[in-house]
Design a protein around this nucleic acid. Structure first.
Lengths: 108, 108
DNA sequence: TTAATACGCAACTTTATGGTTGCTAAAATA
DNA sequence: TATTTTAGCAACCATAAAGTTGCGTATTAA
């Protein structure tokens, strides 16, 4: 339905999902769905949906253990965002050499 | 209604808007609404809406000249995304020192 | 001054998104 | 075994988002 990078951008475009993701990143261990939803003023189902979105985007992975599902952040996936940004960095970064490089590569 | 960073993330979460933004970044000069919409298989109004979203996010600024409205990319605004990413970089970057720094700063 | 061009505004349609509740099933506990 | 806990699934609702068409208006060109 949607390409990977779009899924990723959409996942982090929602403030609640950024919060959930952040909670998982700074957590010292994996958190169950219930543990996460207790931290938010929202139904468990609402949280579950957000986690599904994060999972689809590759930002979260889940390990089932008995009846519980432990969620882990996968911040490495944000490298994709970083890659996307990299091209545009040339246009605002202080390292103007990069822009030069880009312009030269365009000519050749 | 929405905070700045959310607007920014939502703006770049749409593939068409990323395309429009990209077209503006690599354009050698500012492009009018009509010039942009000619590059897309979409009505001019559709493009106008996207540009409004990009403008609200600070990614595009417009200079009116007569009956025309010339659009310019403002890639510098992506610094905000970069800032947001920076925190999570610690968790996947090769520079593990940064992670160390972070963990130490947590303890103290 | 007439005609064409560039554009905004408003209304409307469709589909996505964010969220809810109710129910069911599996696993853990008493 | 009976009960509580954890969580998925499905249906539903409200609002937002993506896109369209039609129309009015200012500016430029003929």
């Amino acid at each position: 339905m949607q390409d990977k990078i779009t899924k990723l951008f959409k996942a982090i475009a929602d403030p609640t999902r950024r919060d959930i993701f952040h909670a998982l990143v700074i957590a010292s261990s994996a958190l169950s769905i219930t543990q996460i939803s207790n931290q938010f003023e929202m139904s468990r189902q609402g949280v579950t949906k957000h986690i599904k979105t994060l999972e689809d985007a590759g930002l979260v992975f889940i390990e089932s253990q008995g009846r519980e599902r432990f969620c882990n952040a996968n911040p490495k996936e944000l490298q994709e965002v970083n890659k996307w940004l990299k091209f545009y960095n040339k246009f605002w970064d202080n390292k103007l050499e990069s822009l030069d490089d880009y312009l030269n590569s365009k000519k050749s």
